[in-house]
Every structure is written in structure tokens, then in C-alpha cells.
């Protein structure tokens, strides 16, 4: 609750800039349309209007300013247009409809969650290996870092095509790409967390003559919990981005990525923007859920978040 007012303030500032920007961004389109509709526009030819900036044109045609907010195909949709589109496609449409964003959301969410689970599991296993084996520390970590320098946009179609050729389609190829993005923060966070106990705490276990596995279960693993949650929050949003990216270049028929692409290709920016916002809200919700699990778990453990 402490962050309520700061967050609202930032959102309000962004909205304000956005609402102001709508006017110059859409002015030329609006002027063209207004002329076709028989309204007075100065200057009165599209060519002459090209010499003006959006702002300049708005100053000369202040009576057209309200119309910049209601373009059917705006260059920059106004916030209320996106809100209406979101309401239409999230709440009004049946979720079985191909136009329902809830339906598309689930198509994206399922591989996101599967990929996140795979990535997290893989990340934890790699981190344990890295911490306990010098060989893995030397060999795996550099490759994990290199893997993240490859543009996922280039890699995603290859993975889809290769897996498709092997007869694997549907949710799994997208989940693999999501896992590819989400395992890395988990590896980095878990390695740091598993190594976080100080020399004194390790010495204490030596005085008890404890085994390596006791040291892992009783000291290293619990000590790494706050680090794990910090990584999971990055991992889940990376997972969602991975899934959307997997939907973009492959002609997917459904999912947030497909909606964004459809909006772009058919000149319906409001549709793209609505999908974008739906994806952002989904990501925020996922991070929020992990944050809640984190608070609950750490409170149970008597600790505070890292």
C-alpha cells in the first residue's frame, strides 16, 4: 500500500503525456479525413499539410483536435479507445470467441507457465551443479551467458521449425522458447543464493561434522530462498515475452503475439495496442502472484525479502 501513491502518480504522468501526444501524432490523418468529410481544413491540400508538423497543424485547426481522439485507424490510439477495445474483447465477448482476448490470453499463458516451470527446474538443477562441481562451474556458466546473447527473435523461428519437423507442435515449442529465456535469471540467482552462506556458517557445520547433503538441505537451500524468488519474478515475465516472441514470426493463429501481428498487418492499431496492454497486465499479475507467494513463504520462514 505504501507504493500506491507513487505508482498512481507515475501512471497519471504517463497518461497525461500520452493524451497530449495523441493530437500531433494523429493530426495529419485527422485532417485528411476531415477534408473528405467536407470540413474546413487549412492548408487545404495534403501536400501542403506535409510542410507542417503535427503540432503546427493542430494550432491552425484547433476545431479538429477532438477528432484526433476518435480515429478508426489512428497512428497513436487514445487511452480510452484501448480501454473500450479491452472491455469489448475481454468482458463483452464470450471466451470461446476467436476475438476474445481471454481466449488468446490463455493460448499464450499456458506455454508461458509450462516454459516457466521447465526453465525454473532446469535453472535450479544447473545452479546446484555449478555450486557443487568445479567442472560444471567452469563449463556451464559461460554457455549459459552466451545463450542469452543470441537474439531470441532470430532463434525462435528456428526452434519452431526444427521442432515442427520432428513432429512436435502446439504448446511445447513455445514453452521451450519461454524456458530458454526464464532459466537464466534462475541460474544466476540460485548460484548467488546457494553461495550466500558465509565462511562462519560453513565452519559451524564443519564443527558438527555434517555431510555435504546436510549442508545443502539445511543451510544452502533455505539461504537461497529469497534469491530464488527475486529470480522467479524476472523469470516469469521473461517467459511471457518468450512465448509472445514465439508467436510473432511463425504465423500463429492465436495468442497475444498473433493478435499484435494481426493488428499490424490489417492496419488495426487499436487491436495491437489492446493485445499489448493485455500482455502487460498479464505479466504484472503473474509477477504480483509470485510476489505474494514470496511474502507468504518468507514470512513463514521468519525472513524478509532480499
Amino acid at each position: 500500500m505504501k507504493s500506491f501513491f507513487p505508482v498512481v502518480t507515475v501512471v497519471a504522468a504517463v497518461l497525461l503525456i500520452w493524451i497530449i501526444a495523441v493530437v500531433p501524432m494523429n493530426m495529419h490523418l485527422t485532417a485528411d479525413q476531415a477534408q473528405r468529410d467536407g470540413l474546413a481544413v487549412s492548408p487545404d491540400t495534403p501536400i501542403a499539410r506535409q510542410d507542417f508538423s503535427g503540432l503546427g497543424l493542430a494550432v491552425h485547426n484547433s476545431h479538429l483536435i477532438p477528432l484526433t481522439y476518435v480515429n478508426v485507424r489512428p497512428r497513436l490510439p487514445s487511452p480510452h479507445q484501448i480501454a473500450i477495445e479491452l472491455y469489448d474483447t475481454v468482458i463483452d465477448k464470450k471466451i470461446t470467441s476467436k476475438r476474445s482476448l481471454v481466449y488468446h490470453g490463455w493460448v499464450t499463458l499456458a506455454p508461458t507457465l509450462l516454459g516457466f516451470a521447465i526453465g525454473t527446474l532446469l535453472g535450479i538443477m544447473l545452479a546446484v551443479g555449478i555450486v557443487f562441481s568445479r567442472v560444471m562451474d567452469r563449463s556451464v556458466m559461460p554457455w549459459a551467458i552466451v545463450s542469452q546473447t543470441i537474439p531470441i527473435l532470430a532463434l525462435a523461428p528456428m526452434i519452431i521449425v526444427v521442432m515442427g519437423a520432428a513432429g512436435i507442435q502446439g504448446i511445447l515449442p513455445k514453452a521451450v522458447i519461454a524456458a530458454y529465456l526464464s532459466f537464466f535469471p534462475v541460474v544466476v540467482g540460485m548460484v548467488k543464493g546457494l553461495r550466500s552462506p558465509e565462511g562462519m556458517q560453513l565452519d559451524l557445520l564443519r564443527t558438527y561434522h555434517s555431510s555435504n547433503s546436510q549442508g545443502f538441505w539445511k543451510l544452502r537451500l533455505p539461504a537461497s530462498t529469497p534469491y530464488l524468488f527475486a529470480s522467479l519474478k524476472i523469470g516469469i515475465s521473461a517467459s511471457l515475452i518468450g512465448t509472445i516472441v514465439a508467436e510473432l514470426p511463425t504465423g500463429a493463429k492465436a495468442g497475444f503475439g498473433a493478435r499484435m501481428l494481426v493488428g499490424d498487418q490489417y492496419g488495426q492499431p487499436i487491436l495491437s495496442w489492446a493485445a499489448l496492454f493485455a500482455a502487460a497486465i498479464t505479466a504484472a499479475a503473474l509477477v504480483g502472484i509470485i510476489g505474494m507467494i514470496e511474502r507468504g513463504t518468507l514470512r513463514q520462514m521468519g525472513m524478509k525479502p532480499a
Binding site: 565452519d203 559451524l204 564443527t207 530462498t225 521468519g302
Partner: peptide, 14 residues
């Protein structure tokens, strides 16, 4: 022997 370190070093999660 039992060893007591300079810092208590209790596990915060226990």
C-alpha cells in the same frame, strides 16, 4: 566440542 563464534550466526529461517 561445541564452538561459539564471534557472531551468533543463528539461521534467520529457524
Amino acid at each position: 566440542y561445541g564452538y561459539v563464534f564471534q557472531a551468533a550466526g543463528l539461521y534467520p529461517w529457524r
